[in-house]
Design a protein around this nucleic acid. Structure first.
Length: 193
DNA sequence: GGTAGGATGGGCT
DNA sequence: GCCCATCCTACCC
């Protein structure tokens, strides 16, 4: 994992959510022996963004989004899947970045077993898929991403173009340009072929 | 190649 | 009670 650089410091996350979402592209998520490079993110903004879980204020579930940056917010959706988010903004201000897709880099055999899928393109190409492949569950909700088995590394990304689009699968604020994609990546969500 | 619809359970109104 | 920041299978070109 050393090839992917050092752990991102808390100051990285203590910025505007859109900046963090854009800057997380190319970084490397590590959990145990598995690692993947982030190729797709979405920003969910504090209180005015009605698509964000934080829009209706602090509840037992959304508490983490209002806490210190650089922690994981993992929630359960559609009765079957978990989604991994990264808490942004300074402590006390809500903001989250949904990790939507990874390019698998390490632990690929483990990912195949967890996913029961062979093709590398089918392992982490969606928010529910990547948590399953990486072994991330609600047990990691609130985990500190600057230490511990679940962490995010600098990733030393080569230069790349960023594509910005509206977010996927929401109805409120559906036209806000808050989805960030590594242009041309084969590993983004929604690919079939 | 393509898409329609079912599975499934926690959180909030 | 109803809504979800989804994924997979079956089935149809």
């Amino acid at each position: 994992m050393q090839a992917f650089g050092s752990i991102l410091p808390r100051s990285f996350y203590s910025r505007a959510t859109t900046e963090v979402a854009r800057d997380l592209l190319g970084r490397v998520v590590v959990h145990g022996e598995c690692a993947g490079r982030i190729v797709e993110t979405e920003a969910y903004l504090g209180v005015d963004d009605l698509a964000a879980h934080s829009a209706r204020g602090i509840t037992p579930r959304t508490r983490v989004l209002f806490g210190p940056p650089g922690h994981a917010y993992v929630y359960f959706i559609y009765g079957m899947y978990e989604c991994l988010n990264v808490v942004a903004e300074p402590d006390g201000i809500p903001g989250g970045v949904l990790i939507r897709a990874l390019e698998p880099l390490a632990g690929i055999e483990v990912m195949r077993k967890r996913r029961n899928r062979e093709r590398v393109l089918d392992l982490c190409s969606g928010p529910g898929k990547l948590t399953q492949a990486m072994g991330i569950t609600r047990a990691q909700n609130g985990a500190d991403l600057t230490k511990g088995p679940l962490r995010i590394l600098d990733g030393k990304p080569a230069p790349f173009e960023v594509e910005i689009t509206p977010r996927i699968g929401i109805s409120e604020c559906a036209d806000w340009p808050l989805r960030f994609v590594v242009a041309g990546s084969k590993f983004v969500s929604g690919k079939r072929a």
